[in-house]
Write a protein that binds this DNA or RNA. Structure first.
Length: 124
DNA sequence: ATTTTGACGACCC
DNA sequence: TGGGTCGCCAAAA
């Protein structure tokens, strides 16, 4: 009982949302927060990921809203994240991941772009 | 109890 | 593009 129930529930919801990001796709702190039922709590997501003890948590799939990695290019964390993403097929270029890799559709352009690719390759 | 910090993000120059 | 503001709020100082 040392911790507050509401906080634990929030943490659990956030970790669940992160685990729900499919392999090979990425999401953002803000999107994860919304998915966890905590709109506007992007910073809390960062906090939870930073302090999580779950070694299986695919934290590398969570990026900034603009596609940037969690940490600035050159830092150990950024290199680790890029490495882990590359291992699951997500290419990182100059510390960023293109919007196309995001699990949720960020904007109409991205959606149309993907639609075009998928339609062209006969898949939907 | 108060202040500062932080793996954020939308906005506005 | 790049940089500053403001809102959010859990932890740490």
């Amino acid at each position: 009982m040392p911790t507050k129930p509401a906080r634990d529930a929030a943490r659990a919801a956030i970790e669940a949302a992160v685990r729900a990001i499919p392999l090979g796709r990425v999401s953002s702190y803000g999107a994860v927060a919304r998915q966890a039922g905590l709109p506007g709590r992007a910073r809390l997501v960062g906090h939870v990921l930073r302090t999580s003890v779950d070694g299986e948590l695919p934290w590398q799939r969570v990026l900034h809203a603009d596609g940037r990695l969690a940490a600035p290019v050159g830092t150990a964390l950024a290199r680790l994240q890029a490495r882990r993403l590359a291992a699951e097929g997500v290419a990182v270029h100059r510390g960023r991941v293109p919007a196309v890799h995001f699990a949720e559709q960020r904007d109409l352009d991205a959606a149309l772009w993907r639609f075009g690719k998928e339609a062209a390759s006969g898949r939907g």
